[in-house]
Every structure is written in C-alpha cells, then in structure tokens.
Write a protein that binds this DNA or RNA. Structure first.
Length: 589
DNA sequence: ACGGTTATTC
C-alpha cells in the first residue's frame, strides 16, 4: 500500500504522488483505507480540490461502498461544492431508500446559484422515478426545457422512463417523438413503457419500426429481453420465435438472461417442449433458469414434473431461492398436490431457511382452498407474519365460491372491505356464492351496495395470434373488421356443438356487469375467429386476461372434439390444453 | 452517465 502520509521533496515527485493518490481512491476496496485517505485529505486541505474530492465522493457514494451518511459528511466538508459534487449527492440519494432527498439537493444546488447540467437533471429525474413523485418530475421537465437541455438523448431517455413509470405513456411517447437523436436505449425505454402501461401490441410493433429504413436502429439484447416479455403477455409464440431467431443470428443465444427469458416465454405460451429444449441447452443454469423451468411446468398444470425438476436442481447443488419455492408451491396448487405442497412448505422453512412471504402463503392458501380446506386456509392467513393483501383474500373468496361457503365468504369480503380493496370481481364472486345458495335477498342487497359504491366492471379481453398477427376481442365485441363472419361462425359452431350435447350455461359472472344475460365472452369470439380464419386442423391458441368460466371451458372442450382442433387457452394464471373433447386441466371443472 | 432474466390472484 502506498504511504499516504509521506511528504515528497520535489514538486515533480509530489505530482506523481498525487496522481497515485487519485488512482488509489478510484481503486481501493477497503473501507479502512478510505478512512485513512479521508483523514489525509482533510489534514492537507486537498479535500477542497475537486481533483481529489470528486473521485473520493463518487467512490464512497456508489457501489460497492454507498455509505450515504459518510457521503453527506464529506459533502458538508467541501467549502465550495461544484456541479459534479452536487450530482454525486443527487445520484447517491436517488439510488438510496430516500430518493426524495435527491430533489432537495438539486433544489439546494440551484439556490446556491449553480446551474444544473444535463446529468444533474438526469439524476434528479431518477430520484423522482424512485420516489414516485409525479409533480416534481413534471417541474423538472419544465426546468430541462428552460435550461436548453432538450436535445440530450440520455436525459430525455430518463425523462421518458419517468413518464413511463408514472403511467403517462402518452407523455413518454411525446418526449420520444421530439428527441432529435434516438439510440437503442431510447427505443428500449419506449418498449418498456408500452409493456409497463399495458400497450403490449404497440411494444411488439416497435421491433419492426425501429429496424425500418427510416430509423435503422438495431435491437440489442435488452430489446430482445423486453420483447420476449411482451410475447409472454400476449401468448404470441410466433413473434417469440422471431425474436428467438434474431437472438441466434446476433450471437445472443449464449447470454444467460436471454435464455432464461426464452424458457419463460415458451412456457407462458404453453410450448413446454420448446421451453425444455432451450432449458436443456443452457450450459451454466443458474437459479433463475431452474426457477423459470419449474414455473413453466407449474403454470401448465404439470406439478409432478415441476417437483422433478426441483429434485434435479437439488442434485446439481443449485441453492433455490424464495422465488423457486413460489413456483413449486404454485405447481402444487394448480395440480392439487396437497401433501407435496405441505411438505415443500415445511422443507422450505426448515431445510432452506426461507421465511414464507406473501407469495408462498398465497399458493398454500390457494392449494388448501382448492381441495376444500377453506377454514384451514382462513386460519393460515390469520397466522401469517406478513400483512394479508387483497390478493390472498381474493384467492380464498374464490375457493369459497367453488365450495359454496357462504358464511366464510362473507367474513372474507369483510377483510377486503377493511383493506378498502374491493373490486367488481370480488362482488361478483360474492354474488355467485349467494345466488348458488339461493339467497336472493343477499343478491339484491349486494347489487345495491355495488351501485352505491359505484363499482364498475371492465370487460376483459382475449387475444389470438394468427400468422404473427395479434387479434383482440372483448365481450360482445363489434370492433374487429371481420366481426360479422365471427358471429356467423359462432352461430354455426353453437349449432354443431348442440348436436354434440353442448348446453350453454347462462352467463352470470366475470365479464359484463354481473347481469344474468347471455353474451359472447371474449374467448369464444377469439375461438370462432380462429375457426373462420385458419384451415381445419390448425392449433388455436388464445390468451385471456381473466380466468376462463365454466361455460367457455365446456365450449372449448366440445369444439376441440367436434371440429377436431387442438385448443390452448391461457387464462390469468394457467393453461388449458383441449384435445379430442377433453382438457388437460384438473381444476374444479 | 439512460433501458433489462425467474414468483401468488379475481
């Protein structure tokens, strides 16, 4: 180690000494050495010179040190902090658990008469993102324009991300449109913005538009990662395969994160064989790879195989993490593996020292509820260390509906009311519990309550991918260009299915508004469109954002037999593979 | 200096 306290005789060697001091600051990994350097800088007044104070402040504010209190102390010892000192502090706060303090430093900087540079604005914008302060972010946007920083690509990209994270997708797009120069990162932020704000179709469209002659920007590994997420959301395997090809063509296929994402994408599109193929080819599988594969089997209703993959993972000596157990437990719940689920829940805590979190409890509650142990599930929720969220109550409410536990259902909805999180779906579930118990008074009462609370239902959507193009349908939809054919085909299909013994159930839940009227659910429309638009025998793949109802489930089952079509419907959480009039799922219906 | 892998649910 260099002697920091030595005094050099000649100015020349003194200069050498100072240079090596700077490189020592930049390279040391020991906190004790930093403390020594600090003492030296103070003693020799070198701390007042930005040559030393800037790297020093940066070093302790950024990883691996990130000692925030210490940074603040150094910062206050600098008599005339310059813009870089301020930037370092803003950045440090932006990344800390007190992101809003970044804004205070920024404001203080301006009060001291120091003009922010694009980096200052970028860091403070980041602090607004982390602290989710919409108002301040908008203020900073105005400030950026006044400072004339409206053509800084980096800054504008951060600003886009701010609007994206604040749910202001249109504003983000506006910033993007007005950017004079767009690099790949800017395009990626646009994609991420579309995904974050549920404009998944637009996200996919970016892949082509960025590569077009007009823009000529090549997607990179991050673009692929984002687009694979979009494909998963839409169940768009065709598009996913395109991305897969692109990944191979550009030599990204050795990147672990991309491979993991591919496994997840194929799994979420119901293509388990493809997922497994990619998975097996991964040379150095990490926790994420294993978890993605387990989760793939789990969500496709193949709980036993999920457990087998976990056993293999154990043999390979890869330590599972909490997400691995979430995937495993959800596998058990989807496949109704009560004993296995309990045993994993126990081993997770005892053997792997994982403290159960809300996800784990959610799975176990779902598992117990599914097999009818609703009171046990209720007790489990009450015994939790963490605060029950609306989701977990909703899970139990769903189980109450299935098993017809009206009294417990009422207790559960009380908890939802307490959390102030009641949504349309919850009341519709409760309505169903009452109506199946024949308690019409309660039905009317609940309807009234919903009206008073102004609870609105949003129609759900189904998508189907044909030749790489995504078609979206909503309940009783009339917007699709070929909707007339679709409805004609619906009538035709229903006629055919009636011959096969299909009886339409009166629709009284989920989509629509809980009214006892018969309407075409979005998945039925998507299926009918699939039958219209593809040659006989083509596999139909539909993605739906809510859970499929029993009627549509029967419909798909019959359709797969009568029309001899393989049908895959992915609902909110899982897959239903229909073939020859049967479904692979062993759920309630 | 800006973007990013795996998880419970209606």
């Amino acid at each position: 180690m260099m002697q920091i306290s030595s005094h050099s005789p000649s100015p020349r060697s003194n200069q050498t000494h100072l240079n090596s001091l700077v490189s020592l600051i930049k390279s040391t990994t020991q906190t004790t050495q930093l403390l020594q350097i600090h003492a030296y800088l103070l003693r020799t007044s070198l701390l007042q010179e930005s040559t030393f104070s800037v790297p020093f402040l940066q070093r302790i504010s950024l990883p691996p040190f990130q000692i925030l209190n210490y940074s603040l102390q150094i910062f206050s010892q600098i008599l005339r902090p310059n813009v870089t000192h301020y930037n370092t502090m803003i950045r440090a706060y932006a990344m800390s658990i007190h992101p809003e303090r970044g804004f205070y430093v920024y404001r203080d900087m301006m009060r001291q008469g120091i003009r922010p540079n694009p980096q200052s604005s970028s860091f403070v914008t980041k602090s607004c993102i982390r602290g989710s302060s919409l108002f301040r972010g908008v203020q900073i946007h105005g400030r950026i324009l006044r400072d004339g920083h409206h053509s800084d690509t980096l800054l504008l990209t951060t600003l886009m991300d701010f609007y994206s994270c604040s749910g202001k997708c249109d504003n983000a797009c506006k910033v993007f449109d007005e950017m004079p120069l767009r690099d790949t990162v800017a395009w990626n932020v646009l994609v991420s913005c579309y995904i974050r704000n549920n404009r998944t179709l637009d996200a996919l469209a970016v892949f082509d538009s960025m590569q077009s002659g007009e823009h000529g920007c090549d997607p990179d590994d991050v673009t692929c990662l984002l687009l694979l997420q979009a494909c998963s959301n839409l169940c768009a395997v065709g598009f996913g395969e395109r991305i897969h090809e692109y990944i191979k063509d550009h030599g990204y296929h050795r990147a672990l994160n991309l491979c993991n994402s591919l496994v997840a994408m194929y799994s979420k599109c119901g293509q388990l064989d493809k997922a497994y193929e990619v998975f097996q080819k991964i040379a150095n599988k990490d926790v994420v790879s294993w978890t993605a594969m387990i989760s793939g089997f789990a969500s496709n209703g193949r709980g036993r195989e999920a457990i087998n993959v976990f056993r293999e993972m154990e043999r390979m000596g890869i330590p599972p993490d909490e997400q691995t157990f979430t995937a495993l437990l959800s596998g058990c719940s989807h496949s109704g593996l009560l004993d296995e689920g309990r045993s994993i829940f126990y081993r997770m805590q005892r053997e792997f020292g994982v403290v159960p979190n809300i996800h784990h409890y959610g799975c176990v509650v779902d598992l117990m509820g599914r097999v009818g142990l609703v009171e046990d599930a209720y007790d489990l929720i009450n015994s939790m260390r963490c605060k029950p969220d609306a989701t977990i109550w909703r899970t139990l409410l769903g189980a109450c509906k299935v098993h017809g536990h009206m009294e417990l259902g009422e207790r559960v909805i009380e908890h939802l009311i307490e959390l102030n999180a009641q949504e349309a779906g919850d009341y519709i579930l409760l309505l169903n519990i009452y109506s199946s118990a024949g308690n019409w008074e309660k039905v009317i009462e609940t309807r009234k309550l919903m009206k008073e609370k102004g609870i609105q239902t949003t129609p759900s959507a189904s998508t189907i991918e044909l030749k790489g193009e995504i078609h979206e349908f909503r309940v009783d939809d009339t917007s699709h260009p070929r909707i007339k054919e679709v409805y004609e085909m619906m009538d035709e299909i229903e006629k055919q299915l009636k011959i096969g013994g299909y009886v339409a159930e009166i629709t009284k839940e989920k989509e629509g508004n809980g009214l006892l009227s018969y309407s075409y659910h979005s998945e039925k429309l998507a299926l009918a469109f699939g039958v219209v638009a593809t040659p006989p025998g083509t596999k139909l793949r539909v993605a739906k954002d809510l859970r499929i109802c029993i009627d549509c489930h029967n419909f798909a089952k019959m359709l797969s037999g009568v029309y001899n079509r393989e049908v895959i419907i992915r609902d909110r959480t899982r897959f239903h593979h229909f073939r020859e009039g049967r479904c692979s799922c062993n759920d309630f219906w």
